[in-house]
């Protein structure tokens, strides 16, 4: 059974820049917000550490955060959650894929954006591999 890391937190409403800072960091990590309350990531040494440091940053701005390790126990729920991560990556890859179909795409910019999305594509969605292959081919043409 797969293990997940869960973070839920509260940051004082003002100044709002702090709330935005935390929220952007969570989006940047590719964490998924469940039911407007808990952020989840697959548990790896790396994701655990990122959440761990985010907890200390939240405490620094007088917020409260709790970090959990958990697994889903009901049949099918784990796959449902994995599918949400896959769908989130696919949504991020989609515009890159579209851009690659155009005439003379900016390969340099696209490959940088690709690396950014791949960093948080935890379950290696198939569109990511397609883009990787397309970029490799484009370079050789």
């Amino acid at each position: 059974m797969r293990q997940w890391v869960l973070l839920h937190y509260r940051v004082p409403p003002s100044p709002s820049a702090r709330r935005v800072y935390v929220w952007r960091k969570l989006k940047n990590l590719g964490a998924i917000l469940l039911h407007d309350s808990v952020w989840v990531l697959p548990d790896t040494a790396w994701t655990y550490e990122q959440f761990q440091w985010l907890v200390t940053e939240i405490a620094d701005v007088h917020g409260e955060a709790m970090l959990w390790q958990a697994h889903l126990t009901l049949p099918g729920q784990e796959q449902t959650l994995i599918n949400r991560f896959l769908a989130a990556s696919e949504r991020e890859y989609e515009p890159l894929w579209q851009a690659l179909q155009q005439d003379a795409p900016d390969l340099s910019a696209l490959s940088r954006q690709f690396q950014e999305v791949r960093r948080r594509d935890y379950f290696a969605c198939s569109l990511g591999q397609q883009i990787y292959d397309a970029l490799t081919r484009a370079r050789e043409e």
């Binding site: 761990q52 440091w53 907890v55 200390t56 940053e57 620094d60």
Partner: peptide
Amino acid sequence: IPGVRLSHRRG
């Protein structure tokens, strides 16, 4: 280690 003097600070 979280919370000690020599640790992550302000990101």
